[in-house]
Amino acid sequence: MDSKRCVALIAHDQKKDDMAEFAREHQDALSTFRIVATGTTGGRVQDACPKLDVIRLKSGPLGGDQQIGAMIATGDVDMLIFFVDPLTSMPHDVDVKALTRLATVYDIPMALNRATAERLIDFHINR
């Protein structure tokens, strides 16, 4: 695997614009990471930031959440930024809970909203 630290980017449908804007504002910092993302989120980030190298996995409901969970379990993901939409029910909510549980079990930094993601990126820039 690449020696760069890896960040996983995921966003629920109502938060994909927020994720694209976040990536645009922080593309210099994100360029220091290897980036993996669920399919649609990864596409939106690539459209917003064509210079970023984003590895797109499957869409979340089609297994992308589980792919990222497996990468967390094998130590291949160092940080998770997951913009969740708590006001919309998700048919794959079980996968989402499993993903956040894995991030907790494997003790990786995890942001579930933009404010926390900003702090994680700021920490990365200033260390």
Rank of each mutant, 00 (worst) to 15 (best):
R119H: 12
Q66I: 15
R114A: 01
I68F: 04
T100I: 15
A115K: 14
R114D: 03
A20W: 04
G43K: 14
R34K: 14
L80G: 06
E21Q: 10
L102P: 05
D107M: 10
G60N: 05
L9I: 08
Q66V: 14
R44Y: 13
R119S: 12
L57W: 00
V84D: 13
T40S: 08
G43M: 12
G69C: 00
G64Y: 04
S31G: 03
V7Y: 10
L120T: 04
D95W: 10
L102E: 07
A11H: 08
Q46K: 07
T116N: 08
R34E: 14
E118S: 07
D17I: 14
K58M: 15
I121D: 09
F22R: 06
M110P: 00
D18K: 00
D28L: 13
T100K: 10
I81L: 09
F123K: 14
G39Q: 07
K97T: 07
D13N: 12
L30Q: 11
P86I: 12
Y106E: 13
V54P: 00
D95T: 10
R119N: 11
T32L: 14
P109M: 12
M1Q: 02
S3L: 11
M110F: 03
H12F: 03
V7Q: 07
R44P: 00
P91K: 10
F33H: 08
G69L: 03
Q46L: 00
D65I: 01
R24F: 12
L112G: 15
L112P: 03
T100G: 04
Q27H: 15
V84A: 12
M19F: 04
H124T: 13
I72F: 03
D17C: 01
P50V: 01
R101C: 04
I72P: 02
D76G: 02
S31K: 05
D122E: 15
D28S: 13
I55M: 13
P109N: 11
S31H: 08
M19C: 06
Q27C: 13
G64N: 03
S59Y: 11
V7A: 12
L62C: 06
T74S: 15
R44F: 12
M1H: 01
A111R: 06
L99N: 03
S3G: 02
D65N: 10
D53Y: 12
F83D: 01
A98F: 05
V45N: 10
I72H: 01
F33Y: 15
L57I: 00
D2L: 04
G42Q: 01
R127F: 11
L120E: 02
I35P: 04
M19V: 02
D122Y: 08
L112E: 05
P109H: 13
A8E: 11
I121W: 10
A70M: 05
I125S: 11
V54S: 00
L87C: 03
S31Q: 00
V54G: 06
V96F: 09
V45R: 10
G43F: 03
P91S: 06
R127M: 13
M79H: 05
T40G: 02
M79I: 05
H92K: 04
M1V: 01
A23M: 07
D93K: 02
M110Q: 05
K15Q: 14
D13E: 13
A11I: 05
A37V: 00
T32Y: 08
V105G: 00
V94H: 09
S3N: 14
D95Q: 12
I125L: 12
